[in-house]
Design a binder for these strands. Structure first.
Lengths: 199, 199
DNA sequence: GCTTGACTTTACCGACCGGTCAACTACAAT
DNA sequence: ATTGTAGTTGACCGGTCGGTAAAGTCAAGC
């Protein structure tokens, strides 16, 4: 295989792409190996199982998302609510690019895997749950800042952050179902307007 | 098989239960036949394919949802916004009962199938898309009524209804991921507060 | 130059997948 | 009594699934 520049990473990249654009169950180990240009034996040299690979894939997705969306949107030099709107815009642009590349709105990789496997694969469910908690926490920091500058008042910060995350996931799901990225452009910015009042 | 009280319906019931609690890919025809107490040949006497069965299952889910939630919540003798809150409460109670029965928050059967199959199975994607459109329409009628009685002003009715639907689906997804129905109780009522302002 | 061990290749495993088929049963119409 | 037909049965199909294992390659360390 020529020089084999990091076989493990090629497997991870191939799996990320295939699982995001199809589903966990529909993507077999053989298909991942084909795309990565690797034999099945090599696959199992690096990953003990398809499930374990998927856990690593989820880690990679989170790192990518943090770099491409969170770190670029949640910056201190704009107002908190504007950060959420910027996050919405970047998310739209990201999914729009995916649609141009693959012909499909692929939706959120975390939501996709959670929906498919939450009732069947406990390790994957836990991993996605943990990622959602981190996402909610990042949003919560922005909401907290928003309360501090007086943009929001009388809200339950944790519940509001969770509701914003839920709204984002729901909009992604509708956009995927309709295969229409403009839904993201039109609806996602409203996540900055969601509020759950303090109990 | 004794008197075989409507084999076709038993297949539909078994498939509905299994697909909702697991996933499309994870539930095989053999498992459906086992639960229904039917041989595989009988299955294919009534349904040309697993895909076709699933389309019928989706129809059944929509009828059930309409009877159990929509028709019970969207009644004219309470204020429009209160109808949405009632819808949220009934949805919580429904999922809470499912959790008691199965040990799991199963989420929305439409959202589950859309997320799993939207990029892979066009007939199923279209069917779910159509069901979402009907759901959005039902919500839109309530939003329209809400505007007419002056509860909401200056909003984009279609976009608001779609945002409410998205929020509901997102909250269901989070509740499924955390396997915690109280998320539905705490967050779902806020769907009545979502607004997308007129452009 | 030999050993070691990470990495790769290839053939293979049993289980299960969705789907097919020919034979059979039960019953209604003739 | 015979035929037509809806429904049912259970064996069977080729293909694919995730995963295993034995053999081989190759470069670094001694």
């Amino acid at each position: 295989m020529a020089n084999t520049p990091d076989t493990q990473q090629r497997i991870l990249d191939a799996a990320s792409q295939l699982i995001h654009s199809r589903s966990y169950a529909d993507v077999g180990v053989a298909a991942i190996c084909d795309l990565a240009g690797v034999q099945k034996g090599s696959f199992y040299h690096f990953f003990p199982s398809k499930q374990d690979l998927t856990l690593s894939v989820l880690d990679g997705f989170f790192i990518s998302m943090k770099e491409a969306l969170i770190d670029k949107a949640f910056v201190a030099d704009i107002a908190p609510l504007a950060r959420l709107e910027r996050f919405a815009l970047l998310t739209y642009q990201f999914q729009n690019q995916l649609k141009k590349d693959t012909g499909r709105v692929l939706g959120c990789p975390f939501g996709n895997l959670a929906t498919e496997l939450a009732t069947q694969d406990e390790p994957i469910r836990k991993k996605v749950d943990h990622i959602f908690a981190q996402l909610q926490n990042k949003i919560g920091e922005v909401v907290t800042a928003s309360v501090q500058v007086g943009e929001m008042t009388g809200i339950n910060i944790d519940a509001t952050a969770k509701a914003m995350l839920a709204y984002m996931e729901g909009v992604m799901m509708l956009a995927k179902t309709q295969n229409d990225p403009t839904i993201l452009r039109n609806l996602l910015p409203a996540m900055a307007q969601i509020r759950i009042s303090a109990s």
